[in-house]
Simulated scan of single mutants.
Amino acid sequence: MKPASLIVLGITGAAALGVVAVLASVALKQEPETGLLAWQDPEIIGRGAKIYRSECSSCHGGLDGSAPAADAPEPSAPPHDENGHSWKHPDYVLFGLTKSGEVAELCLTGNGDVEMPEFAEALNDRQILDVLSYIKSTWPEEVRARQEATNQIYAAQNAATRELLENGGS
Rank of each mutant, 00 (worst) to 15 (best):
L36S: 02
T109W: 01
E121L: 09
L9R: 13
S57V: 10
G10F: 13
G65H: 08
C59F: 04
P3A: 15
V93F: 11
T98A: 14
H89N: 14
V20T: 12
M116V: 09
A159F: 06
E55I: 04
G84F: 09
K2C: 14
D125T: 07
V20M: 12
H89C: 02
E105D: 15
S100R: 02
Q30S: 12
G62L: 06
R53D: 12
P68A: 14
A122F: 09
I45R: 08
Y52I: 04
V143K: 14
L28Y: 12
A21S: 15
W39L: 08
G65F: 04
E142K: 13
F119N: 05
A70Y: 09
L17S: 01
C107D: 02
E166C: 00
P79M: 10
A14E: 01
V143F: 06
N83M: 07
S170P: 01
T98F: 03
Y134T: 02
V26T: 03
D41W: 00
A160W: 02
V103W: 07
L36H: 04
N124I: 02
A49I: 00
A155T: 04
E33V: 15
V114Y: 11
I51D: 07
V20A: 15
A14H: 08
A49L: 08
E31M: 07
D130K: 05
S66D: 13
Q127M: 03
V20W: 07
A24Y: 10
Y134Q: 04
Q152D: 14
G46T: 09
Y92G: 03
N111K: 14
L63H: 00
V22S: 03
Q40H: 11
G110W: 12
V114A: 12
I11K: 02
G168A: 06
G35F: 03
A14P: 00
E115A: 15
A38F: 07
S170Y: 11
L108C: 05
I51R: 09
L17Y: 00
A16H: 05
K29C: 00
E31D: 15
V114N: 12
P78R: 09
W139I: 03
T150N: 06
A24T: 11
E55V: 09
L123W: 09
E148W: 10
P117T: 05
M116C: 02
G168N: 02
E82H: 11
T98P: 09
P68N: 09
I44W: 04
P3Y: 09
A14D: 04
A16L: 15
A104W: 00
E82V: 11
E115Y: 07
W139H: 11
A77M: 13
G61D: 05
A155K: 14
Q152Y: 06
A160D: 14
L97H: 06
S5Q: 15
F119I: 03
T161E: 08
R146Q: 15
V20F: 09
T12W: 00
P68G: 05
G10L: 15
G110M: 10
A24H: 00
